[in-house]
Design a protein around this nucleic acid. Sequence first.
DNA 1: GTTGTTACTCAACAATGTGTTGATGAATAA
DNA 2: TTATTCATCAACACATTGTTGAGTAACAAC
Lengths: 210, 210
Amino acid sequence: MTETPKQEDRRTLRTKKLLRRALLEIIEEKGVEGITVRDLTDRAEINRGTFYLHYQDVPNLLDKLQEEIFAGLAEIIHEMDIAKLLSESTNDKPASSLLQIFEYLDRHADYFRVMLSPKGDISIAIRFKNEMTRRMYDKLTTFQPQEELMLVSREWLIAYVSSATLGVIQHWLSTGRKLSPYEIAHVMTRLARNGPLRSVHPRLGPPPIP
Amino acid sequence: MTETPKQEDRRTLRTKKLLRRALLEIIEEKGVEGITVRDLTDRAEINRGTFYLHYQDVPNLLDKLQEEIFAGLAEIIHEMDIAKLLSESTNDKPASSLLQIFEYLDRHADYFRVMLSPKGDISIAIRFKNEMTRRMYDKLTTFQPQEELMLVSREWLIAYVSSATLGVIQHWLSTGRKLSPYEIAHVMTRLARNGPLRSVHPRLGPPPIP
DNA sequence: GTTGTTACTCAACAATGTGTTGATGAATAA
DNA sequence: TTATTCATCAACACATTGTTGAGTAACAAC
């Protein structure tokens, strides 16, 4: 029924590429709120009317790019496995699911660096967190159905972890990714396993897990 | 030299109050990007020109409100004491610094609920996190100057904790503050002391601290 | 290479928001 | 009461938006 997605015209590809580049440039300079169609098309060196041949307006352009990038990311987040994260917690290696996420972010760093920055599109961060949150709910409900056995309820645990993860990602991106995906995944794993306070000094409280 | 801040005119106070109310209303509906001076003054039922008698533009209005709210918050954040948080970690009570923060947020919930929501002003969240971050650096450097003794470096630990804290705050505000400031501070304290993974089930890894 | 299609350019349009100004009237503080 | 300050109103130039119609250039397919 559905036809094979016809290959796009060279000119179309060119225009979209130019617009994407101009968009990231403008956001980095002026932030999401500072985008105008005129500025966009001036930088891309295309006619203003051409913009409207491809996108309805600026939010629509942002949406389209977001869909693109999340198509790839959703799969990876779907693979996240808390049970595995917990069962692996006897060694000191980065959790594989985290590693995959950081590798994906690294691959699309031009986009994420800008979009997850303070000047970027907040809806990207929201969505990223939402995907993590949903996934964690599923996995956690299966793994530990008895909420009363937990130190804090699922709800707060998940809000805590998903925000912390996003925060570390943003810091990593905004400081030039000085650590490799492997190294930063390792850091994240240690923090998740031992908790922040125990990470200050292992001798405070019980020893760290590894 | 500086005169005592002259008491403001009734009419001025009235106008500013109406604008504040209208602002929070618009942000809740359409988000920060959807604010227009016309909409603002229509809802406040004042003349459009009147807006410009008090504020240069919309960002300036946002800034003024931000300054107001942060004047009070800065003091509290300044009181945060990691050393205390760690030394108190033999009991299961909420850390006093966290409790104070949640009480302040609770008192100004009309503002924070909107501003720290996804539709709100991202710069509030940024600044909030920055204040926490700076404070933690100071305290942590004093308390544990030997970074090599830490499981993860200060930099990442702080990015992790400050983001997690903000995330829990946002979740608390957006879900109607169903827990009291005391209860939510308690949750935060447990998460900080035991770490997320250990909070899933205390028997995983070493026992929780208290 | 020719040909039909599609994307791009350009100029003009109404509509809407912005920030400012000057004249007028009303509320306020003292 | 009185002088001051604030709010209103109408009008202004300017910028951005989203659309349209006509002309031009690039493209894919044959």
